[in-house]
Each structure stands twice: as C-alpha cells, then as structure tokens.
C-alpha cells in the first residue's frame, strides 16, 4: 500500500500543479475559450455533455478493444508462422516492415471503401496500427527460444505443433506481452484516427467524430474533453493488458528473474 502511494503520489502532484498553473494562466492572461479553455471549463462542459461523450467513449473503446483483439490474434499467428519457417520469414517480414510505414490516415479512406462507415472500419484501423508490435514481438520470442530446450523436444520426437504450443509459445510470452502493451496504446490511436475518416456522426458518434465536429463548432472545451477521454480509454486498455500479462507471467517471470 505504502509502495503504491509512493509510486502514485509524485505524478499526481505534478498533474495537479500543471492543471493549477493552466487554470491560473488562462484567468490571468484572459485567454479566449476557443483558443485555450480552462481545465474547470473543460470539466463543466464534459459534465454537461456527459451522455454524448460517454456514448462516444464506448464506441471508441469498442473499436480499440476489437481492433486490439484482432491484432493480437493475427499478430501471434503470423509471427508464429514466420518464426517457424525461415523462407516465410525472408519473404514476408520485409513486406510487413514496409507496410507498417504506410500512414494510417492514407489507408483509412480505403477502409471506408472496403468496409463502409462505422465500427468495422475503425476496428480495422485500430487493428492495422496495433498488429506490427505483436507480430514483431512474437517473431522475436520465437527466434529467441533456447536451442537447448528445443533439443529436449527433439530427443522425444515432439511434433511441430507440440513444440510450438508447449515450448515456443510459452517461451515467447514475455516478449508477446511487451508487444501487446505497446499495441494497446496504439490501438486507441488507430481507432481515433480511423474515426476521423470513417466514423459515424449522430448520437452514438465516437470520440474521433466528437473531436472533429467540436473543432468545427469552435468548442475547444469539448475537443479537450474528448481527447482526455480517448487517453482514458488508452490508459484503461493498457492497464487491463498489463494486468493480464502479469497474471500470465506471474510464475514464469519469478523464475526467469531469479534464474538471471
């Protein structure tokens, strides 16, 4: 408990100090609200528009979580396949590297053409951004499998699938969990960027659309509120993934740390 407090307290204090400075700065220099609204005003606006913002948050969270889940599945399967075959790896990995350099904003219109407006497109956008860290970390984990442990499996004539399931996959877990944590943050970014292009307007408009429409209405306070909430979605997803990762690696990790 004491340790949690000492970890949490410094950033909370810094955050409170920054918000206070922001509030005072806006009032002292009398900055117009369309340019930089005060934190208090943002909070009040968010409270007034809570139903719209919460509905948007739910939409964005659905896109991010769905896209992240897809990215983990595709990333682990593809990474495992590439890890199992040198030929596949040589052929496909450079292409995967190149593909992840293509900006998402440029692909988003294509997603609309293929998948239409709405959740499917934004989910796909989140997935595309999140997939590479999972794939790369899975491949790294597979390649890093201890050759000595592979020999144990070879002695007992283990099949390829058994070797993957009982050796390579559990051995890669620490690396995969790290990739997933990076991917969790990226999935929310992907979802919001995807929403800028392919999100639905209306009552259930996701945060990306809330940001764009509030910008057009010069409601900077709502832009800040939506940005804050999308960051919250990111934190939440990152926290859940980290927690699940800790649970998965609890036994493994303790042994790995002590062994090193």
């Amino acid at each position: 408990m004491k340790r949690t407090l000492t970890t949490m307290l410094p950033p909370v204090l810094v955050l409170v100090a920054l918000l206070t400075a922001w509030q005072i700065g806006v009032q002292v220099w009398n900055l117009p609200r369309y340019l930089l609204p005060s934190p208090w005003l943002i909070l009040c606006s968010a409270w007034q528009e809570q139903s719209r913002l919460l509905a948007g948050m739910l939409q964005t969270a659905m896109a991010a979580v769905g896209g992240f889940g897809l990215a983990v599945f595709i990333g682990v399967v593809t990474g495992s396949l590439l890890g199992a075959s040198q030929r596949l790896q040589k052929g496909f990995y450079p292409i995967a590297l190149l593909l992840q350099m293509v900006p998402l904003v440029a692909i988003a219109p294509l997603l609309v053409i293929w998948l239409g407006y709405g959740l499917r497109s934004t989910m796909a956008a989140a997935c595309i951004v999140a997939i590479f860290p999972v794939l790369a970390s899975t491949l790294d984990g597979m390649r890093g499998t201890d050759p000595g442990l592979r020999e144990i499996f070879a002695i007992h004539h283990a099949g390829r699938l058994a070797r993957w399931w009982k050796l390579e996959l559990p051995g890669s877990l620490p690396s995969i969990v790290t990739g997933c944590r990076v991917a969790a943050g990226l999935a929310v970014i992907g979802a919001v960027v995807g929403e800028f292009v392919s999100g639905y307007a209306g009552d259930q408009a996701p945060l990306g659309i809330v940001i764009v429409s509030s910008m057009r209405e010069a409601r900077t306070d709502l832009v800040f509120a939506a940005v804050g909430l999308s960051a919250c979605v990111g934190f939440l997803l990152f926290g859940i993934v980290s927690g699940l990762g800790w649970l998965l690696l609890r036994r493994w990790h303790a042994s790995a740390v002590q062994e090193n």
Binding site: L149, E151, I155, H156, K166, L167, G171, L173, R251
Partner: peptide, 18 residues
C-alpha cells in the same frame, strides 16, 4: 535444461506428455 515456466512435476512429466 528445465522449462522455467513449468513446475518440477510438469517438467518431469514432459516426455510422457509429448
């Protein structure tokens, strides 16, 4: 060469499991 994520019992049982 024991699998670090498996208990002692699961390590010993591995050849039979395979």
């Amino acid at each position: 060469r024991l699998l670090p994520w498996r208990s002692v019992l699961a390590n010993v049982a591995l050849p039979l499991e395979l």
